[in-house]
Design a protein around this nucleic acid. Sequence first.
DNA 1: ATTAGACCACCAACTCGTTTGTTGGTCAAC
DNA 2: GTTGACCAACAAACGAGTTGGTGGTCTAAT
Lengths: 210, 210
Amino acid sequence: MSDSQLRTYDTGAAAAPLTTREKLLRAAREVFAEHGLAHTRISDIAARSGVNRERVYGYFGSKEGLFDAVVNDALDELAEAVPLTAGEDLVEYVDRVHEFHRLHPQLLRLLLWEALHYRTEPLPGEEERQGRYREKVSALEQSLGAAEGHLQAAPTLFILIGLAAWPSVVPQLARLIMGADESENPEIMREHVLSFARSALRPTKEEAGA
Amino acid sequence: MSDSQLRTYDTGAAAAPLTTREKLLRAAREVFAEHGLAHTRISDIAARSGVNRERVYGYFGSKEGLFDAVVNDALDELAEAVPLTAGEDLVEYVDRVHEFHRLHPQLLRLLLWEALHYRTEPLPGEEERQGRYREKVSALEQSLGAAEGHLQAAPTLFILIGLAAWPSVVPQLARLIMGADESENPEIMREHVLSFARSALRPTKEEAGA
DNA sequence: ATTAGACCACCAACTCGTTTGTTGGTCAAC
DNA sequence: GTTGACCAACAAACGAGTTGGTGGTCTAAT
């Protein structure tokens, strides 16, 4: 966990004035999500945050340092905002993941930029992230009752996340295939995703019969 | 269709010597897929293609012009390499899409760079791409027999493509969740994807009973 | 109270490498 | 003799990272 979450997604709580570091992180998240690491100018971040360009180097050392901090920060929030509790209904989980990414496409863009950038090399903070998913996998193992005995926890989690995130990952493709009206209507898209998830997760004949 | 496909994925055919333009396109595809639009240096492309840097401007006008040409070219190949014929088994289609992206991750990277870059603005060549997918959708409509009456063609196509491509879109995430051994084993990953597709596509009780 | 010093941010100017895009000349081939 | 490629050098802009100086504020010692 990084020490300074932004909690952009929090609802209430007394709004403490942002520190300079937080202002930078918040602005950087937006700009990086928009333009990616390479196309982002430090001066844009400075301008948007209202903080002096030079401060970036004081706090984060370099552009990449800032980028990594931003990603870490955003990941913390994601983990907190979309937990997977043991025994929970999986379709509901898919719904929550889907909804989160629909409302906060920034994070996904950030992660995609990062994924493209770091190709297959290990990511910064790889172990910590692994830990997070290990927890989710074991929570999922308990959710997979007799009805879904045919599924393994890890790959199922992986694929369900994909299913939930896909519309936010490639909205252009959705538009090309489904047309703007359907693809940009949240309720319609949500229903497609959820009904697909329901289909895939419903018990097999044997499981139903048992 | 762009006039000069590279047919990187072709097996046989007499290997005509590449024109300068083709050499550039081929090299550019690799470098752009690797580094994205912003981080790619024209001189890298020139070096890899063995063509003079200056020729890029003669043929494509600018870096972006070259990028667009590369994407178009690659899309043509994708469409040709992974057709969807009417009446075909959908799981097989997923298999082919999955396999293609596993073997040629370049294209997906290219499209992701592009998607991130152009955000939600219309893409270059938007109508042409729409046309391609419209064909696929109507082919799919004929594949969806009584057994899958509960599915609509367009969103189903969209989601199935996602399912098939997901492991190649975020291999890092697969590694984090499933571990390197499983996630990098083609047969294992394939089986997970296909069995998920089978699950989702199997007939409902009513359809089976009917 | 006053002052010294630590801390933090602002600001402007500067270095310096990088990269795009251009141009004019040369050369071989068809 | 036209076409297409090579080549070398150039202009110009751009953007990362650095530095030195200014000034405000909070605290702790005098």
